[in-house]
Design a protein around this nucleic acid. Structure first.
Lengths: 204, 204, 204, 204
DNA sequence: ACACACGGGACCCCCCGTTGTT
DNA sequence: AACAACGGGGGGTCCCGTGTGT
């Protein structure tokens, strides 16, 4: 499983490295989800791949950097969803776009969204990087815009964290993406009191 | 929950200790919720109270023991709810009883239920103590009993983790218990497709 | 098992205290022998008796003090043996007196002599108190006086530590004192090349 | 015992590490013998070499692991001695082979055999690893096979622990191996009542 | 791209000793 | 005589990050 010698084709090393980086991110995500971020050491991650901590350090100089590399793609996907939704005219449309967009994101990045939505230590790091707004406040505002008073914020919070936890549940790990997506959208709409639009125009 | 009056004239140390133990649990809960269980050191807890780690050790010999002392009361409250609900005849009644009971518990122990429902490191400890069944499986089964197939488990998961996260949200910390309770029950019923019963017979 | 209230007869307390002190010494000796001196904490000793460390502190202010209380009686018994032996005229008589005296002492205080003879941490404490001479050097000199050169010291060392370890062996714990004593004296004489005297003048 | 030459041109670190590991074992053995196992902290060991505890951890993750690394070679040498002796036909031959083999081993690893034979904390660790049989029971049985009843076990115990303590005595540290070996074998044979064989066929 | 060796520091557990109270 | 509570400190483990080498 380890990267064998080399010296033959330097491209091999590059490939192996690329793959090691990916495997590193995979292993880290798995372990973060299992033991929480603060409960996962670099040693555990290195052991998971059978490499040394120094090798991990070669790819990511810091555990926070590893975390950033893990979440940056998802945040990049979240941004257009939030912006798209914000641009719509009615509160219902905004909420529905936010809902469907978030569910789609969550289903494709199950474990990642799960830890983003539940791990307080991770939330602290992200807040420190100024992502709290994008990750929590704006989605909550968009989802909760259809109800007045506290009901909106409460419903939005339930939806957001409910989805995040559900996609990360190992009891539902064997569920296919389509079913999961459909069920989550249905449930979300029921909570928020949204009527399903006539035609969904979203494309992956 | 705080040390009440006291009968005759308890010793000064005993009073201080009682209060120290309680303050210890309070501080630990607050810090666990803020930094996650694994991210909270005994030093942080001790510093919070201005005592030394040795004093913490005097009350709880391990961090796990501290955690156990923290959650045991809540687990003791959860058990009769689950058993009560299990004894009812229709799936709807079981789900509704589980829902209202859990919401009530969650609203009264907001932070505690929040960390129980989200922190993976804590879940690991509890699973190691055999509480996974009471904490996750049976509630999920009761809540999800009204829908067939995966829909039931999904809805139940959303409800459970949605409630847990919502009561722990600091954005909703200023919300009074009654409103929070009512909103959560409404939302839960909408997700699960339950019609509110004619009269609620629950007693606090 | 704990000393009950009191207030009735102060003598009761005195008796209980006396007995606690003895039980403390007993427990300490047993634990020292099982885990070595350095490996035995006051907590372990207190737990053994079901009391607290503070209660131990009440009787012995220091672990070294506890050790001293343990060994002082035996040292007090050893001194006249060494002096008696020293006063005899022939090397053989001196060695035999030392041998029989030490065996007798060792058989009556099996565990104590065992730890005195084997535990390096204890030996360090005793050496610090100036007992090395009485405990090691003079007995070795007396026992080894019958052979010239290194043979004497070697044989004496074998005898001394052999006896100490043998009386402490749990494989031989069920052996009665008389048999043990006789066997040890025989073996010691064989090693040292001593002929048994016509009449043993030992007193119990 | 030190890291010998080295083949081609090993890396500087590797050499340093090899030597550090050896020096670590040396220092640990010395300190264990002086202060007992339980009385020796990793800090003391690290200080002895002028390195940090973390560096010690790099080589041995646990103090028990360090101890294991220390004794494994000796245990590996002891095994064939016990098996060789067991295969012989007469009790006398078995006892003599066990005696000479053990003396040889003890003289070559003086300090190590000394702590193995005297430190109760070490014996506990070894017993936990299932080595009690090889280290105590079988040698005792072999050595004591020439006498019936308790005499055999007593004599065997004296011989075994006498040898172990004698080779570790600092009063005899300056004695050369050959003399020590010869004296110990003689004394052992006298205790056990063995007649020296016509020719010793042992090979170093 | 990765391993080996190590420093600095923190963490959890626990120990010893002491005070105040009953 | 005994306990509850606690301070100061150390032990063992382990973590993060780095330098050096291949």
């Amino acid at each position: 499983v380890t990267a064998v010698s080399s010296r033959v084709a330097p491209r091999r090393d590059a490939i192996a490295a690329e793959s090691t980086r990916e495997r590193l991110l995979d292993a880290a995500l798995r372990l973060f989800s299992e033991h929480s971020f603060a409960g996962t050491s670099l040693q555990m991650i290195a052991d998971e791949l059978g490499i040394t901590k120094a090798a991990v350090y070669h790819h990511f100089h810091t555990r926070d950097e590893l975390l950033s590399a893990l979440i940056t793609p998802a945040l990049a996907e979240l941004l257009p969803i939030v912006e798209d939704a914000t641009a719509l005219r009615t509160p219902q449309a905004r909420a529905d776009r936010m809902l469907t967009g978030f569910v789609d994101l969550a289903v494709r990045h199950r474990t990642l969204v799960a830890i983003l939505g539940t791990d307080r230590a991770i939330l602290q790091v992200l807040t420190g990087q100024g992502h709290f707004d994008l990750l929590v406040e704006r989605p909550i505002a968009l989802l909760g815009g259809t109800a007045s008073g506290s009901a909106g914020r409460i419903n939005a919070t339930i939806v957001l964290s409910g989805i995040a936890s559900t996609v990360g549940s190992e009891l539902l790990a064997d569920l296919d993406d389509e079913t999961m997506r459909a069920r989550l959208v249905e449930a979300g709409r029921r909570i928020l009191g949204l009527r399903p639009p006539r035609r969904t125009s979203r494309r992956p």
